[in-house]
Write a protein that binds this DNA or RNA. Structure first.
Length: 190
DNA sequence: TATGAGATCAACT
DNA sequence: GTTGATCTCATAC
């Protein structure tokens, strides 16, 4: 039978470059609200654009802990961004969750976002966190326990790769992954 | 459709 | 004091 199973913590105990594309198509719920992951970005510790590049700080401490935990930080003073911590490979790495296809808890997402347009509910890291109610209170929580619920995909979808968005360092690295053809991407792949 | 400002916090120079 | 893994709204073409 095809009962989907929750992702074990060991799923994240691998290279961020394997975990990131494997997350495309998986389902993420936070307190029962969420949907299908359609866009992520990998941040490796050798990468000048990664928060962990310069070593541990109070903000990024969770990235230096064990894999399978949530790293949440404030972006531009306004938004929250959700990451999944992966294997350290010498130093910290994580996957930034950039966009979901909303499936569960549409009403709560709309209420939190104050919007009716389904396409804009979760298409972007800041929007996604607002819709799912993710804040710094989730920083450091395990991904295999409540309020998180992560479910693996049953089939490997067609995955697009491209350059990352909104960064000024290491802009050429093609470490953004997305569900090919999804209408819920924060930006189309070229 | 495209560009620009403002919001506002943690890290860094 | 400046910059950033962003988003929204306003104004211009």
């Amino acid at each position: 039978m095809a009962e989907p199973r929750g992702l074990p913590r060991s799923f994240f105990a691998r290279s961020v470059h394997k975990v990131a594309p494997d997350l495309i198509g998986a389902t993420l719920l936070v307190d029962g609200v969420g949907g299908r992951i359609v866009e992520v970005e990998a941040y490796h510790h050798t990468d000048p654009a990664a928060h962990s590049f310069g070593g541990p700080t109070p903000r990024n401490a969770v990235m230096f802990g064990p894999p399978g935990y949530a790293y949440v930080y404030r972006s531009y003073g306004i938004h929250w961004c959700l990451n999944f911590v992966c294997e350290r490979e010498g130093s910290a790495s994580a996957v930034l969750i950039r966009a979901l296809e909303p499936l569960e808890g549409l009403r709560r997402m709309r209420r939190r976002r104050g919007l009716a347009d389904e396409h804009l509910l979760c298409s972007g890291p800041g929007r996604l966190c607002q819709a799912l109610g993710v804040t710094v209170a989730h920083n450091g929580l395990a991904l295999d326990r409540r309020p998180f619920a992560l479910t693996g995909r049953d089939r490997r979808p067609e995955i697009a790769a491209g350059v990352r968005i909104g960064i000024t360092k290491a802009m050429e690295l093609p470490w953004r992954y997305g569900l090919k053809g999804s209408r819920f991407l924060s930006k189309p792949f070229r």
